[in-house]
Design a protein around this nucleic acid. Sequence first.
DNA 1: GCTTGCTCCTATAGTGACTGGAGGATGTAC
DNA 2: GTACATCCTCCAGTCACTATAGGAGCAAGC
Lengths: 143, 143
Amino acid sequence: MSHGIAIGKVSVATGVKIPTIRYYEQIGLLPAPPRTEGNRRTYDRKDAERLTFIRHSRELGFEIDQIRTLLDLQDRPDQSCADADTIARARLVEVKDKIASLKALEAELERMVEGCSHGRVESCQVIEILADHGKCKHHQHDA
Amino acid sequence: MSHGIAIGKVSVATGVKIPTIRYYEQIGLLPAPPRTEGNRRTYDRKDAERLTFIRHSRELGFEIDQIRTLLDLQDRPDQSCADADTIARARLVEVKDKIASLKALEAELERMVEGCSHGRVESCQVIEILADHGKCKHHQHDA
DNA sequence: GCTTGCTCCTATAGTGACTGGAGGATGTAC
DNA sequence: GTACATCCTCCAGTCACTATAGGAGCAAGC
């Protein structure tokens, strides 16, 4: 096999861990590559690119199923990119929501630690705010 | 049974789903309550308060093990609240980091959807940015 | 040729924090 | 008395991996 890339090399090149690469193959996100005589996976440059695409998508918080759709789109360049646009926009909304939610948490946590007088638990704002939901304005959070 | 609260009532009162309440009992976060003759769990006001504490802590993103520590502290009001303070501060740092990370994602997603010309996938910024990691400045993310 | 040590293989189980379903018992309202 | 809501236990599933066990392949040095 002159120029097949071993899984370890692909892993380093793409930043995707070896078990994760095998996992992606298992769930059909990455095609099963040919094997050497010794039964080892041999990848090519296209596989590495696909993995980079996947990793980057995961970093952006897209779910595996969404990535499946995005990869399908990438494979058919003549199609409309409306689906990709929809997925990205939906993710953007999610991210904005999450930021807003986390900012609320941040404010409440700040109130907690600022209120801590470093004394006994008895008079601790941290414990007290956690115990009494009425003392805060925070209402919902999802991760 | 005059004043035991049924699991369904506690669930509604605290906003914690019934299977989740049973799960918390199973992992030892909530003490196993007494049962009626018909083998049904009966809770009291203190249990409901404990569940509210847990729910609020989860909403703030604390992990179960941290909540265990926080509950232990609550049970011993004469102790120093330094541990609670440490946990809350650590969570605050996490939240701040996450906000920063999500803002980077937000920027990149915005660049993606703004660059989308609503044409073919061929020329779609969304797909292109995902494929080519060099086209973005984003580097790490954890959820 | 042989050993050392790295890389790779499969298969299975574990993670966190739940959630869902099956199949059955109990409690309540009409 | 019967319909229906609520509850019970146990077990499997979720997501996206991660870890472990137990072995085989391969490249380099002696």
